[in-house]
């Protein structure tokens, strides 16, 4: 279970709302900024947004579910995208993916309990020369082998 600090949510929503001149019409920007802080949009946060902006929860919920950029499921600080396009597939992307699943203990589409990593697959990132490619928060890692996975994850864990 993920623990949420309700007081922090209140403060963050107030701050972001203030940033946009307390204008409820700028809901998308508000939600985007909040997602930047939390990496996803928890239920309590959406309720707080509705409370403070005066926009009905049904509307906030519709917006949050309408756009793909918003996630109502927990997402980690680092989003790991394993390329499974043709070139990467041939070069053993699935072995890399399996190793990532083992190391992180999650399946594709899931997030680790400490909210550090989210594992996803993508179909081609246009960097086939570097195959197999793993993209972590917009940084491209080329020539990844199952053996390199553990140290890669360790690197990111220690970065914070």
């Amino acid at each position: 279970m993920i623990e949420l600090d309700l007081e922090k949510i209140k403060r963050d929503v107030a701050e972001v709302f203030e940033r946009y001149g307390r204008d409820p019409a700028r809901m998308i920007e508000i939600l985007q900024d909040l997602q930047d802080i939390y990496h996803w949009l928890p239920k309590e946060l959406l309720k707080e947004v509705s409370r403070q902006t005066g926009v009905p929860l049904t509307r906030v919920y519709h917006m949050a579910t309408f756009f793909k950029a918003f996630s109502l499921k927990p997402r980690g600080k680092y989003v790991i995208q394993v390329c499974t396009g043709t070139a990467c597939h041939v070069k053993g992307a699935y072995m890399v993916l399996d190793q990532l699943k083992n190391v992180l203990g999650i399946d594709v589409g899931e997030t680790t309990d400490d909210l550090m990593f989210t594992l996803e697959t993508v179909n081609c990132v246009g960097a086939c020369a570097l195959a197999p490619v793993v993209v972590i928060n917009d940084y491209y890692h080329g020539y990844v082998t199952p053996g390199k996975v553990e140290s890669l994850i360790k690197e990111y864990r220690e970065q914070q």
């Binding site: 009905p56 049904t58 906030v60 309408f66």
Partner: peptide, 19 residues
């Protein structure tokens, strides 16, 4: 009262209460 609204879009769009 704004009790019900839409969720999602396209193929998965539906009417429901929030969450």
């Amino acid at each position: 009262v704004y009790a019900i609204g839409f969720e999602g879009r396209g193929f998965t769009r539906r009417v429901c209460t929030p969450f």
